[in-house]
Design a protein around this nucleic acid. Sequence first.
DNA 1: TTGAAACTCCCCATAAATAGCGAGGCAGCG
DNA 2: CGCTGCCTCGCTATTTATGGGGAGTTTCAA
Lengths: 237, 237
Amino acid sequence: MTNRLEDLLFTLQAAVTLEDLQAVLESLRDHYNVEHTVYHWVNSVGERYGAGTYSAEWVDRYLEKDYLRMDPVIFGCFQRFTPVSWKELDWSSKPAREMWQDALDHGLGNQGYTIPIRGPSGQFALFTLNASLSDEEWAQFIDDNARDLMILGHEFNKKALEFEQWGEDGSVPALSPRELESMSCLARGMSRAQAAAELNISEHTLRVYIESSRHKLGAMNTTHAVARALSAGIIII
Amino acid sequence: MTNRLEDLLFTLQAAVTLEDLQAVLESLRDHYNVEHTVYHWVNSVGERYGAGTYSAEWVDRYLEKDYLRMDPVIFGCFQRFTPVSWKELDWSSKPAREMWQDALDHGLGNQGYTIPIRGPSGQFALFTLNASLSDEEWAQFIDDNARDLMILGHEFNKKALEFEQWGEDGSVPALSPRELESMSCLARGMSRAQAAAELNISEHTLRVYIESSRHKLGAMNTTHAVARALSAGIIII
DNA sequence: TTGAAACTCCCCATAAATAGCGAGGCAGCG
DNA sequence: CGCTGCCTCGCTATTTATGGGGAGTTTCAA
């Protein structure tokens, strides 16, 4: 790792505002001589947050076309633990190919590398580099910098979590043990009658737990409550 | 990073059995000249999996006394993103102090450093180093090796996920675009009527998508289907 | 071009979930 | 000693979801 990169890490660790993060990302882009550097996350209620060097046009376009819901980068990273080079992903679907072309038209390079990063309470973030290079050059670049990039991604996420106090406050409601068990049973496919039998309580009592879970999670219905509980990482299937 | 550590990383990446992981952990302990090195994960049903250099007696003791349910290291790491030195944790409760003493009596060193690692579908693992050193020496050791340890922890988790095919296999059924949209709407709390309106289709049509999604996902009901889709990472709230 | 898969729509009957009203016992906390 | 939160149980009525049937178009790939 060069001294320049150490400087950037130091600047990152000293960051106190979103603008600081943005500045570090821009310095990083210049340091690596790539097209774009981006850090962003998607949380359990669908709120987004991010910083990076994408043009405002592309960001607007991305949101307007709701690419978030079909972006192979997002889905690919969400299902994996390890970072991924964009060309390894599945771009075979028509909307994906259209998005890819759209991205190229908006100034993105043909190569990308995205690191999935997960934090407490189901937090999920992505750290991305985008460049215009041949496959060979890109593979070499990744090979040379993968570890540094992972450290950088984690430092960005650490900062972002500090900003948002993710999970420190009551942002993820605490469910009681019985409520968690109820949610877990439902997530595993049991009907209310089955779940009640599993927990050795009356179906009515189970219903009370489901209701209180729903209210705590701010959910519209049982499915929503289970989805939020899963997404927040307070239950797993 | 020394060549010796590079060798260990190479060995780790070539590992194909649990015994290989165990061997790498032992080499790692010797390399760092610490008391213990451990990698393990914990899932929601309390199933464990791990490898490390703790004595069989301590592992048995830990399980027998159900320390898993109150271990400050587990709880602390579960709530944080960043690695933690054990002395930073809250050991004020009586059971925690008793466990601490018990651990010392079973050959653990007085210093520990644990890295929380998260993978897809709520997977959660810990990579731990334990040693007998003064606070100053330990702080210096961590300062010198934090980045290498993070890389190592992630490589261990990558291997463990490969062993268990944790979500990385191709066994996730492919839903059609409309089916995915239907699941996504339901996961975000819409009723069938609302979701149908959102997708500009009749409620009957939406029902067809939900049914087909359920069958493809092998789910017992809608909530189960949404839970599986979320867990598989094919939809994101 | 043929066929599979996706997409769209409809009816009917039953099962399940939701909303509202209750109630009491038990633990921990200030 | 109240307060709050958790755990447990009951009733009624309404809304919503599910399971079974069928049938037509479009779209994309073999």
